[in-house]
Simulated scan of single mutants.
Amino acid sequence: MTMRIAIDTDVCIGAGQCVLSAPDTFTQDDEGFSELLPGARPGGSGVTLAVQSCPVGAISLREEG
């Protein structure tokens, strides 16, 4: 099983907590909404913190495979 970071763009409000928690994984698009940086990986405490700190629960870690 591998883990995948998922961002629900319909829920994201652009608070930016993910970028503050894991700046090597997340960025914000031109409209201020969360998106993954190229090559982003789900490991690391920063990603877990980003999932936990998202005020609307737009970010999740999901198992694939």
Score class of each variant (00 low, 15 high):
residue 49 L to Q: 15
residue 20 L to N: 04
residue 35 E to N: 09
residue 24 D to T: 09
residue 44 G to K: 13
residue 64 E to C: 12
residue 37 L to A: 01
residue 28 Q to D: 12
residue 51 V to P: 07
residue 45 S to K: 04
residue 18 C to G: 03
residue 8 D to V: 03
residue 19 V to Q: 07
residue 3 M to R: 14
residue 21 S to E: 12
residue 23 P to H: 12
residue 12 C to G: 11
residue 54 C to S: 09
residue 57 G to L: 04
residue 33 F to S: 03
residue 8 D to A: 08
residue 13 I to M: 15
residue 39 G to H: 01
residue 38 P to G: 08
residue 53 S to G: 06
residue 20 L to S: 03
residue 55 P to C: 03
residue 18 C to Y: 09
residue 60 S to H: 10
residue 57 G to W: 07
residue 46 G to Y: 03
residue 20 L to F: 03
residue 65 G to F: 11
residue 57 G to I: 01
residue 60 S to P: 10
residue 41 R to G: 06
residue 25 T to H: 09
residue 42 P to F: 01
residue 65 G to Q: 11
residue 19 V to S: 08
residue 57 G to D: 05
residue 1 M to T: 06
residue 22 A to H: 06
residue 53 S to F: 07
residue 22 A to L: 02
residue 52 Q to M: 14
residue 62 R to P: 13
residue 59 I to Y: 12
residue 36 L to Y: 02
residue 25 T to I: 11
residue 7 I to G: 11
residue 54 C to A: 03
residue 26 F to R: 06
residue 11 V to A: 14
residue 48 T to V: 10
residue 38 P to E: 02
residue 41 R to W: 05
residue 38 P to M: 05
residue 45 S to A: 00
residue 3 M to P: 10
residue 10 D to E: 14
residue 60 S to Q: 14
residue 19 V to Y: 04
residue 13 I to T: 11
residue 30 D to W: 09
residue 61 L to S: 06
residue 11 V to D: 15
residue 12 C to R: 06
residue 17 Q to H: 15
residue 40 A to D: 12
residue 42 P to Q: 00
residue 28 Q to I: 01
residue 8 D to K: 12
residue 50 A to P: 00
residue 40 A to L: 02
residue 51 V to G: 09
residue 10 D to V: 01
residue 62 R to D: 08
residue 12 C to E: 02
residue 46 G to H: 03
residue 50 A to D: 00
residue 42 P to R: 04
residue 24 D to I: 08
residue 1 M to V: 05
residue 62 R to I: 07
residue 8 D to W: 02
residue 40 A to K: 10
residue 21 S to R: 13
residue 56 V to M: 12
residue 11 V to P: 07
residue 47 V to D: 12
residue 25 T to Q: 01
residue 59 I to C: 14
residue 47 V to F: 06
residue 54 C to M: 08
residue 51 V to C: 11
residue 26 F to V: 10
residue 35 E to F: 13
residue 3 M to S: 14
residue 22 A to Y: 02
residue 45 S to D: 08
residue 15 A to Y: 02
residue 50 A to V: 01
residue 23 P to L: 10
residue 30 D to G: 15
residue 46 G to K: 09
residue 30 D to I: 05
residue 49 L to D: 15
residue 18 C to M: 03
residue 38 P to L: 09
residue 63 E to Q: 15
residue 30 D to F: 08
residue 17 Q to C: 13
residue 51 V to F: 12
residue 45 S to F: 07
residue 13 I to D: 15
residue 49 L to W: 07
residue 44 G to C: 13
residue 37 L to T: 00
residue 28 Q to E: 10
residue 40 A to F: 05
residue 65 G to K: 15
residue 53 S to T: 13
residue 63 E to F: 05
